[in-house]
């Protein structure tokens, strides 16, 4: 008998992301699902959240009543003060990234390739517009923005992607080769989605965990490259 399939919601994906937080890590969380993980740090673990606009050590996402315009993360969300916090300039925030001090960067993605190439800032390809973003905007398509994604993807010690497994049109987002403009080549090491946890290895993509009720075949059906199955495959643990 088949178990009912259960896709993880965004909060639950974020809970799974938070399991990757090791004690003492400096962690940067990108917009969307990744930022939600700030509220799920396991008891007994201490991690320091870095935000590109110049903050280390914020507590979590702020409730409405404590929101302050001068306490925001880089995803335009109000965050809370926590003891030990520090503030600094934007250039210093990126010195920390480029200088290799960020242990973990969690980013959203539009596509991830089997080699770990990340595409997360443009729904399309700049080559179609001769590299000119104005030509792109004039077609009526939404303007792409790089933000801090290229810096993080190029220089964080470890990059994890947290995203829905497929697009709204059920197209795979884990692909053989990114068709969208890439953020950085070969930078992603782990992909956490609503149906699976997949490791990017030199031998290819390895399926490590599946959502309740999902078989490896179910995950493969929504994934373009061929997945290797980890012998220790298990259900996603929160």
């Amino acid at each position: 008998m088949n178990m009912p399939k259960h896709r993880l919601d965004e909060q639950t994906i974020a809970m799974r992301v938070a399991r990757e937080f090791q004690n003492g890590m400096y962690v940067n969380l990108g917009g969307g699902i990744p930022t939600l993980a700030a509220n799920f740090v396991a008891e007994g673990r201490e991690v320091v959240f870095h935000t590109e606009n110049g903050g280390l050590g914020y507590g979590g996402i702020a409730a409405t009543e404590e929101a302050d315009w001068d306490m925001f993360n880089a995803s335009f969300q109000p965050v809370t003060y926590a003891p030990g916090m520090s503030f600094f300039s934007h250039d210093e925030a990126f010195d920390m990234i480029r200088g290799g001090k960020i242990d973990l960067s969690v980013l959203g993605a539009m596509q991830v390739s089997e080699k770990g190439d990340l595409a997360n800032w443009a729904i399309g390809n700049m080559a179609d517009y001769n590299g000119d973003v104005v030509a792109w905007i004039r077609t009526g398509r939404f303007p792409p923005g790089i933000g801090g994604a290229m810096d993080l993807a190029a220089a964080a010690k470890k990059v994890i992607v947290a995203m829905k497994h497929v697009t709204n049109k059920n197209e795979p987002k884990i692909v053989r080769k990114c068709t969208y403009e890439i953020t950085a080549p070969r930078c992603v090491s782990l992909i956490i989605t609503d149906i699976a946890v997949i490791e990017v290895t030199p031998q290819g993509l390895v399926l490590k965990e599946t959502a309740p009720g999902f078989t490896p075949e179910d995950v493969q059906a929504e994934t373009e490259p061929i997945l290797k199955i980890d012998p220790a495959l298990k259900e996603i643990q929160l």
Binding site: H90, A93, F94, I146, A149, M150
Partner: peptide
Amino acid sequence: IEVELVPQGTLAARMK
């Protein structure tokens, strides 16, 4: 209007 896209940290470093 011309638009040049720059990665955020590179933009900060170019100012610095």
